[in-house]
Amino acid sequence: MELADMRREYTRGGLRRDNLQTNPVDQFNLWLSQAVDAKLTDPTAMTVATVDEHGQPFQRIVLLKNVEEDGFVFYTNLGSRKAQHIEHNQRVSLHFPWHPLERQVHITGVAEKLTAKENMRYFTSRPKDSQIAAIASRQSRRISARGVLEATFLELKKKFAQGDIPVPSFWGGFRIRPTSIEFWQGGENRLHDRFLYSREGNEWIIDRLAP
Rank of each mutant, 00 (worst) to 15 (best):
K65H: 09
Q59R: 00
I132M: 11
R194Y: 03
T76R: 01
N189L: 12
I143W: 06
E87I: 01
P127N: 12
A151T: 11
I165C: 08
L40R: 02
F72W: 02
H85N: 15
R177Y: 10
V48G: 05
E53H: 02
P127C: 13
N119H: 04
R142W: 05
S125L: 00
I205C: 15
Y75R: 05
P43K: 07
N119Q: 00
T76F: 00
G71H: 03
T115P: 03
A151K: 11
E155M: 14
F195N: 08
Q162E: 14
S33I: 08
S198L: 13
Y10A: 14
N202P: 06
Y122L: 05
V105L: 10
P57L: 00
E150M: 02
I165R: 03
W204V: 05
A35M: 04
T124F: 05
T108M: 12
P166M: 05
P178T: 04
L114K: 00
F58I: 06
L114N: 00
M1H: 12
M120Y: 02
W171F: 06
L78E: 09
N119V: 10
P57E: 07
F74Y: 00
P100S: 11
R194F: 09
R138M: 10
R141V: 11
S169A: 15
G186K: 03
L154V: 14
P211D: 11
L196C: 09
K158N: 15
L78N: 05
F183R: 06
G147M: 14
M6N: 08
I86D: 03
G79E: 15
L30V: 03
F96W: 10
P43Y: 02
H85C: 08
P57W: 01
E69G: 01
L64S: 00
R194L: 10
R142L: 07
Q59Y: 01
W184I: 04
R8I: 00
E9S: 07
A145N: 06
L30C: 11
D70G: 08
T11S: 14
S125C: 02
E155K: 12
G201L: 02
R141K: 10
A38E: 10
Q27Y: 02
